[in-house]
């Protein structure tokens, strides 16, 4: 059977998540569904960034006591991407919260969750 590396596979999954997220935000008509699509998009970006830093057969980038310092940079997974992801998760949560608040306000005003009615509907 064909050997597929974990990195390639997760990269594929990440791009699928990003595509599903963007497509959901563009084409789904329900505002809550758009919100869930947004979380999927941010998950996909996080997964892509984490898999960028993966080193096959490497170790977790934590310098344990007694470990060899000279071998560490060669073996450890890169932490560029993961360092960003931690912040991106937090930003994703805060954006989700703001979007949820806006959706609740718009629902109270218009009484519907359909984006086609809320966003393109009657102006004022």
């Amino acid at each position: 059977m064909i050997e597929v590396s974990l990195q390639l596979l997760t990269f594929l999954a990440a791009s699928l998540l990003i595509i599903i997220g963007i497509a959901g935000m563009l084409f789904l008509d329900n505002l809550i569904k758009k919100l869930i699509s947004f979380t999927l998009l941010s998950d996909g970006v996080n997964l892509a960034l984490v898999s960028l830093g993966y080193v096959p057969g490497g170790i977790v980038p934590i310098l344990e006591p007694g470990a060899s310092i000279s071998d560490f940079p060669k073996e450890a997974a890169l932490i560029f991407g993961p360092g960003i992801v931690l912040t991106n998760i937090v930003i994703g949560v805060s954006t989700t919260a703001i979007l949820a608040a806006l959706i609740i306000m718009l629902y109270k005003r218009y009484g519907t969750l359909k984006a086609s009615k809320v966003l393109k509907g009657e102006m004022e």
């Binding site: 991106n88 954006t95 979007l99």
Partner: peptide, 16 residues
């Protein structure tokens, strides 16, 4: 509120 919602949804793309 509509303008804010649209602008924030687009921030998903630009922020990512």
């Amino acid at each position: 509120q509509k303008a804010a919602l649209k602008y924030t949804f687009f921030s998903a793309l630009s922020g990512s």
